[in-house]
Design a protein around this nucleic acid. Sequence first.
DNA 1: CAGATTGTGTTGCAAAGGCAACAAGATTTG
DNA 2: CAAATCTTGTTGCCTTTGCAACACAATCTG
Lengths: 219, 219
Amino acid sequence: MKYQSINLFDGITTEDCDRMLTCFGAYERRFSGGEVICDFEEPSGSIGVIQSGRAELIRIDAFGSRTILEELEPGSLFGMAFTFSDVCRDSMNVVCTADCVVLYIDYWHVTHECSNLCAHHSVLLQNLLRLMAEKAFSMSQRIEVLSRRSIRDKLMCYFSICSLRAEKPEFTLPFSISALADYICSDRSAMMREMKNMREERLIETNGRRVRLLSVQEA
Amino acid sequence: MKYQSINLFDGITTEDCDRMLTCFGAYERRFSGGEVICDFEEPSGSIGVIQSGRAELIRIDAFGSRTILEELEPGSLFGMAFTFSDVCRDSMNVVCTADCVVLYIDYWHVTHECSNLCAHHSVLLQNLLRLMAEKAFSMSQRIEVLSRRSIRDKLMCYFSICSLRAEKPEFTLPFSISALADYICSDRSAMMREMKNMREERLIETNGRRVRLLSVQEA
DNA sequence: CAGATTGTGTTGCAAAGGCAACAAGATTTG
DNA sequence: CAAATCTTGTTGCCTTTGCAACACAATCTG
């Protein structure tokens, strides 16, 4: 099962698309690396779609511990119900890591037939449904990784997912080794120690962000 | 922000609903406690909707360690892209915990206008969108909890969510204390030890599944 | 290019958590 | 009702992990 990423506007012509976006009151914004795209300070009724570039959903807790809650790639959604709204009073941000174009769409407009009867409203809805399914999929993966009890198991689970996605046992991490520690919610030095052990036990080979799974699990 | 759960068929009359379901090839099945509703053995193109009862999404890894990946309540969705499909070769099941009625809908039919032009297709799509958003929301919560580094923090985060949902500092856990350990992916005895400490430090009070948060966080 | 920042790699130490094992109350089931 | 099962509760021991602190390469920035 492989998911090729789709864009929200696949199957809609540029003219129709422009017309709908005007009708929806949608708008685009550009961000450059390091900028905070969204800080969830006030509730918003709009969905953000990463059109291009990269961003991360970051949580910083009261003690300054930083966690990457999510990697956002082109096609990724954020905002609204997609993000857990700060129950624990930590600061949450979507931070741009590589120059981004973000499209904002009002949620209400998407779910209600508009008076102009936009021709491709239903196509948009279908695309949105599919993007959300992809998002649900990636969150399930994250839960899968985080549900492991040890750093080693978390790494092995995450690497398995990466290698499955790459369709080979060798792949490149989508972020730095340090960020990987944030992703698996473990201490960086503890993780590096464990990776060293795993290299010595010949479970993996690493070279920078390049990782190769050696023990292709037999089961 | 409070979410009242919706049903997939809200806003659709019973007759229209029946007609659509026939048209979609949807069907209902009943399960009783302990039965395995879905084992993800073969890929399926359908969405499962819990209509009534309760179920859990369970993973059992190669060493027999059991994890509740998700609590499924009426309105919850499972199957397809909603569940991470077994990358790590562990066994995954949806298990019925209280007598369930489950509705299966073919995914393809939902996303494509049918030839019969079912009147309320778009309403169904909107409802599905909303259910998926709710699911995304609950998965975000789960990630929020699991991303905490210590058992104490995981518990506090989870209890905060529960108390927010209950709109008061006292609430009843939706599952047994033992199952809570599975939910937060920690050792049961370690969790009990930590809960004991937390009781002694007067962070919480517990009585069976009844929990009261004492330190209503000041920030 | 110099200084600042970020990423990588390492270590000692203390604390937290996992594991195993046991005991006893509660609930279910034949 | 008695046996079996599930849930709660506890403890000791040992491993894993987090934390603090350091060193050094790579990259960014004015």
